[in-house]
Simulated assay, not measured.
Amino acid sequence: MKKMVLFLVFVLTLTACKKETDIKPTPALADKFAGSYQLNSFRFTGGGTELDLPTLPVSGNGQSVSGAVTLVKVAGAKLALELVIKATGANDYKLQLENLEVKQIGAEYGLFSNNQRIADVDGTALIFNVSETDPTTKETIAVAFVARR
């Protein structure tokens, strides 16, 4: 759990400045992609911990794991993302990201945090994939998931 919190801190402090000249924020795009998505897969690696759930929801032996992602329009082309993973007998895990910007790149759409593309979205699916390396410890933490409406 501490590794996931550490990852959240990394994501919230991303400072990448990758510039793409054909990126255009459009306020109406936030409306198009806002809504609820069911988590279909989830992967986390970091600090010697690896969690790979290639198919969700999953259940067996009286245990179940499921999840959901909600995109909420904040203002203009900005969205907030909340990921919630539920597991039998455990506290819900929540990851919240604020001020994500929806941008169109050619025929594709992406979610950006501080000009770094962290997800692709098309109205029916959300594909999230972020990895970050701590410059002092050289530890890489990665989170990836797929969610569908």
Rank of each mutant, 00 (worst) to 15 (best):
S113L: 13
G62F: 08
Q104A: 12
N99T: 03
E101R: 00
E132M: 02
V74I: 06
I118M: 08
Y93S: 12
A75L: 04
T133R: 03
E82P: 01
S113A: 14
A125Q: 09
V84I: 11
D120F: 12
E98M: 06
L79T: 02
E101L: 05
A90S: 14
I127S: 10
A75F: 09
Y93V: 10
A144M: 13
E101V: 11
E108S: 12
V58P: 04
K78G: 03
D120K: 12
V65I: 15
K73W: 05
E139V: 01
N114H: 14
K138W: 12
Q116W: 04
V143H: 00
V143S: 04
T70I: 11
T137L: 13
A125P: 06
D92Y: 06
T133F: 07
P135S: 13
V69K: 10
P135L: 10
T70P: 03
Q116L: 10
I127C: 04
V69G: 02
E139T: 03
N114F: 12
S113P: 01
K103L: 08
D92N: 15
L97R: 05
S113R: 15
Y93E: 02
N99H: 02
D92C: 10
S59H: 12
L97D: 08
T88R: 11
T137Y: 13
A68E: 04
L95C: 01
Y109L: 11
G123W: 09
L81M: 13
A107M: 14
Q116Y: 06
G110N: 03
I85L: 14
N114L: 05
Q116D: 08
S64L: 09
F145S: 07
D120N: 15
D120W: 09
K103P: 06
A75D: 12
S131I: 00
V84T: 11
K86Q: 00
K86S: 03
Y93F: 10
T88A: 15
T136G: 01
K138M: 15
Q63K: 12
K103Y: 04
E132G: 07
Y109H: 11
V130Q: 07
A142I: 01
T88W: 08
K73H: 02
Y93W: 06
L111R: 08
L79A: 02
E101C: 00
Q104W: 05
P57A: 11
E108W: 01
V84E: 02
P57M: 11
Y93D: 09
A68L: 02
V102P: 10
T88I: 08
G106T: 10
F112S: 03
A90N: 11
P135G: 10
A90L: 15
G60I: 03
A87T: 11
L100S: 01
E101N: 03
A142E: 15
K78N: 04
R117D: 08
K73S: 11
